[in-house]
Design a protein around this nucleic acid. Structure first.
Lengths: 378, 378
DNA sequence: CAGAACAACTAGAACGTTCTAGTCGGGGCA
DNA sequence: TGCCCCGACTAGAACGTTCTAGTTGTTCTG
């Protein structure tokens, strides 16, 4: 074994290679690589130089194997869910600065949640963040028995011990939407729901409660919908045939709302003049200039921050007394009982306006061309 | 240390725990867990039983650390790219049955490709599959110097040694689209391009070549576009003002086409009667009943299969002589020079038809209500 | 019946890192 | 001067697995 090997072909350089080249021990190289204290300035520089020269790169696995903390957060997400992609973006943004790595595991048609969580566990994650999990409560409880678990956007009936929940106040969001429409003068407001999707029950309930509070209980109408454009379109067709035809619709989410817009546009029903439409999520879709959808926004960065913060707090709260690592600030909409609820906020764009017969000599303009009618797209 | 410990609280059980409980050596437990030969049936059963009892789960990291092969494929993908999600689905479906694990690393606004590939390398992946990478060629070459690299959907100028390319024949797709339109009787066919997006140059070229071949070179018109609805919408506005107004448009992708449809619909221009529209990708979007977009489909399962197959072939071709592991079949549209090109296929739906003035006393119906005009949607 | 061949099993050394418990030398303090 | 402390550095033992090289004991072979 030569003391100063050239770049070892076909073999990944290790601590020992760097150590040999710099003429120090592997332990010292480890210290330098970790930026830990215990190395002199000159030596430090020499080691870094040697590492650079042979293209050394620390082996994350060996590192995690040895240190008893892995600083690894496992995140399960659904492919095909733009909402999950947005959350992931936020999760990365919070976790990495806090010194945690993210291990991703996708759920798709051919790859169930069981498999997804299994690989995360095998990877030695310290905690699990599950985006919109559909697994039965029993499974979540089983996982929670092994490590901290955070469920994002899925509310759990009763509290499952060890499982934290981070979610949007869906009922509150629906309420805001209804309030906005009522304030504009609407009374016949329909809701196209999301069936069994996460959050759907709460939005339905929020809608009903708000309608009641405005004395519009008898006008409340819930149509079966879903999370896709097609389901929204189907519901919209039903809605057009109804008498009296509602003057406003609250859809389960933006995709659903888009389907509604499409059908309305095709039927030459003007939006928002004849019918106002509100979505949910404030997805990229809704923000597109030519869709310009009024919608209920979820605070995605906040959800991500809380999810990661909760997980880290559980991890560091167990070892030391408090979470003093610079990380997610877990205060705010936090509720002691293991559930963090984030407030949604209405984003008013061009698909809502006063119903036509109420406008004072015309239609209350909302925003420039926004009231000229929006179509579907996306 | 008791010989048969109860479930060790707060400590993950290891091989040694299982071994102690089953009264065998750790080596034997390892053999049983890996399903390797060298263990008797009875013992095997006893070990499995013990493992089950204490909830043993192999530690992937320690396993990879020791074994020379890691059987880990690193995949870099972009959040916010539905096309990547689809590819991922296919990649999982091919890789896992072939005995390879997938390590994901996302690219987003706040997390560049450098960081994404760095974590994959630190995780000791054996090969890298990059979905639509934007990194400069030099960076790809640098990576390729360390391990096999497969670039999916990004064509590289000249061949970068060590980098394999798997892509759709974008020019061929554009050609198919033009041929279809010409066959329907169109002559004024415009193309809204994708600017610098991966594949855009090829689609542009394919469009131009096809127009030439049909003797329509002087009618060819390329409008600057992009990959989003908004860019499609902007181009469509330009297009409506043009004289002569084209009777057909080939958009860079489905999202772009959707933006076009939206503007046309809003301008009361009937699709496909007055203008035919073709997209690219055959995304979920295009398949929605109320959008019903004619589009050029990419063979996503095939792309995924080739990408994984190529990576595995490189890995196993280096160690042993041939790739005999049951894995992706890498034959087919394979080209020796390190580039695999997959044929696209036109999917005819409702947004294309003969131009109105050519129809024999009317419009050639395409498919049921498909010809009645499609709108945008999400 | 000796020896080979084989299956079942084990001890102990890797793998690349971090952690623990040092050693060594020098400066401050009494 | 003697002592202690501190910073720089190192040897060697983990971590949980797989691999190598055995060691048994049984059965086949001639």
């Amino acid at each position: 074994m030569p003391p100063t090997p050239a770049v070892p072909q076909g073999k990944r350089p290790t601590l020992a290679d760097v150590a040999a080249r710099a003429g120090v021990s592997t332990a010292l190289v480890s210290i330098v690589m970790r930026d830990a204290k215990g190395a002199g300035a000159a030596t430090r520089e020499r080691v870094l130089e040697a590492a650079r020269e042979i293209g050394y790169r620390p082996d994350a696995r060996a590192r995690l194997l040895r240190s008893h903390r892995s600083h690894l957060l496992g995140v399960q997400f659904g492919l095909q869910h733009p909402f999950h992609s947005d959350l992931l973006e936020g999760i990365y943004a919070v976790a990495e600065p806090a010194g945690y790595q993210i291990a991703l595991s996708a759920v798709s048609a051919g790859r169930g949640e069981q498999r997804a969580t299994d690989t995360l566990l095998a990877d030695r994650c310290e905690a699990l963040i599950l985006l919109g999990p559909q697994a039965p409560t029993a499974r979540l409880a089983e996982l929670a028995g092994q490590l901290p678990v955070v469920s994002v956007a899925r509310r759990l009936r009763g509290s499952v011990p060890g499982v934290e929940v981070v979610r949007t106040a869906d009922d509150e969001g629906a309420r805001q939407a209804v309030d906005h429409l009522v304030a504009l003068g609407h009374r016949d407001i329909a809701h196209i729901d999301g069936g069994r999707a996460p959050g759907a029950a709460d939005r339905r309930r929020g809608y009903r409660t708000a309608m009641n509070r405005h004395g519009l209980a008898d006008r409340a109408r819930v149509l079966p919908g879903g999370l896709t454009e097609e389901e929204g379109a189907a519901a919209a067709r039903t809605l057009l045939a109804a008498t009296p035809r509602p003057t406003a619709v609250l859809a389960f989410n933006d995709r659903c709302a888009t389907g509604v817009l499409d059908i309305l546009l095709r039927a030459r029903v003007s939006v928002p003049d004849e019918i106002s439409v509100i979505g949910f999520d404030d997805s990229h879709l809704a923000r597109l200039a030519h869709i310009n959808l009024t919608t209920v926004g979820q605070d995605i960065p906040r959800l991500a921050e809380l999810a990661v913060g909760r997980a880290i707090a559980r991890l560091e709260g167990a070892g030391t007394s408090g979470a003093e690592t610079s990380g997610g600030d877990t205060s705010g909409a936090d509720v002691p009982g293991g559930e963090a609820v984030v407030a949604p906020h209405l984003v008013v764009r061009g698909t809502t306006a006063a119903p036509v017969h109420l406008g004072p000599g015309g239609i209350t303009p909302t925003h420039g061309s926004g009231a000229r009618g929006a179509s579907a797209g996306g």
